[in-house]
């Protein structure tokens, strides 16, 4: 676990988390994966989130770099289209439904450490 955390920290970003995302406002999103972009410099996962009133809101969340995630043993197939994920992260300051993910919990209980750029600022 410690090693995974260390490798997560090695998956640092190349843009400013502090400027782009609000580190004071953590959020948790539960939704269904609609699209996976497993590309450099960061993966993006698109998720449909069901609101309390039943309304579906599409979100896009940024994760770690594919090279670093691959070294941790994750692949594009880790995320299945239509599969449930619970994302812990931070919302973009611009108010759009964009987030920077700290971790992704999969339906089978596995937790992908996202290697978010927030870790770089700590």
């Amino acid at each position: 676990m410690k090693l995974a955390y260390a490798l997560l920290l090695a998956a640092l970003a190349h843009h400013s988390f502090a400027a782009e995302f609000d580190g004071t406002k953590p959020l948790t999103l539960k939704g269904v994966v609609t699209k996976v972009e497993w590309q450099s410099p960061h993966i993006w996962i698109y998720v449909d989130v069901k609101e309390a009133d039943g309304k579906i809101t599409p979100w896009q969340c940024e994760g770690g770099a594919p090279n670093a995630l691959t070294r941790q043993g994750w692949t594009r197939q880790t995320f299945t289209i239509g599969g449930e994920v619970t994302i812990e992260g931070w919302q973009a300051k611009d108010g759009t439904h964009t987030c920077n993910a700290k971790s992704w919990a999969l339906a089978d209980g596995r937790r992908v450490l996202a290697g978010s750029s927030a870790e770089a600022a700590k």
Binding site: S16, E20, P41, H42, E62, P66
Partner: peptide, 23 residues
Amino acid sequence: EYACTDNNKDLYDGHLQNGPLDG
């Protein structure tokens, strides 16, 4: 591979902000 220009959504979508990366 770490190709910065493959899918740099932060750039394409206009999310990038001024200032140093370490905040």
